[in-house]
Design a binder for these strands. Structure first.
Lengths: 156, 156
DNA sequence: TGTTGACCTCAAGTTTGGTTGAGGTTTTAT
DNA sequence: ATAAAACCTCAACCAAACTTGAGGTCAACA
């Protein structure tokens, strides 16, 4: 069942079930990814999917990207420029992960800014559209100046 | 059109369109929130929605919670214990925002951990299910030990 | 008194990321 | 040889958070 090369690395192509098991995603998900163009498969004479072992890295990359919050469509775009017929290299991975790291950084920054605003507003609660930094998410520009605001019961 | 009280605060009830404009959410969204139990409305004799001005703070709170990533269902739950018939007080807001701040903190932490793992793996790319911290998101436990991993072309 | 704009309800559509199931074929194991 | 396990396609369904549209009513203004 498991054919080994001289060097001891298993080199047989993988069935969809094997890929599912080894990559930790469901078979249905692999079908789905294929439909979305994220992965590709060859077929054997019985029309069953057969994958090169490099699929495992590709799927792994997809999963990591998803954890950073990148939507599948964007992941697909990023992977689209890379060939399906050879494994992703370390270089490919570096480029991708560096990009994703940057967007992850931005997400973290945005959330951190939000947290700070929340801190500044916990004791206030005015939530004024005009004056409260929480309601004015001018996310990038530092048009801040939180500080306590006076709270008029309904003057939102 | 705008009736003022002696003290200069407008105290008229608001129509759904007015709430939409002043709170920055669409009319359809207000209908939707009502259906989900997040907000409530009185009706005038013509069956049109009429809101007390306190609705504006309530909607504001919902929006802020959403920005922190809290799903509507959870926001609904949190707001459920608070009466619809009086404005949210600073105390209400403090309690809510403190809770949400904590979950926001967790989100930030999780993302930061991910970023660090990504940093450790950018030059590696093994993405091994067994060995790569990026693939083993045992998020809470510090079962770390990233460091460089040797990269065998297909040994994912 | 129109007529226009705001409002009403209810149903259906949208997007993202999949899962579930029916009905049928292929592979694998005995 | 046969039965079970794995695979195939295609369609439908799920949840979240809304939006859109149809068909009809109400209100505000000239």
């Amino acid at each position: 069942m498991t054919e080994k090369c001289p060097n001891g690395v298993m080199s047989r192509e993988l069935s969809v079930g094997e890929v599912a098991e080894r990559s930790g995603v469901a078979v249905s998900t692999l079908h789905f990814y294929e439909e979305k163009g994220l992965i590709r498969s060859e077929r054997n004479r019985g029309n069953q999917r057969r994958y090169p072992r490099s699929i495992l890295r590709r799927v792994a990359v997809i999963k990591v990207a998803q954890r950073t919050g990148i939507p599948l469509a964007e992941i697909a775009e990023a992977l689209a420029v890379l060939p399906h017929d050879r494994p992703l290299t370390v270089k490919d991975w570096s480029a991708l992960s560096r990009t994703w790291r940057r967007t992850l950084d931005e997400r973290i920054e945005r959330l951190t800014r939000l947290r700070d605003q929340l801190d500044g507003c916990i004791g206030c609660g005015c939530l004024s559209m005009q004056e409260c930094p929480l309601r004015n998410p001018m996310d990038t520009l530092g048009a801040e100046g939180p500080g306590p605001r006076l709270l008029e019961p309904d003057a939102v």
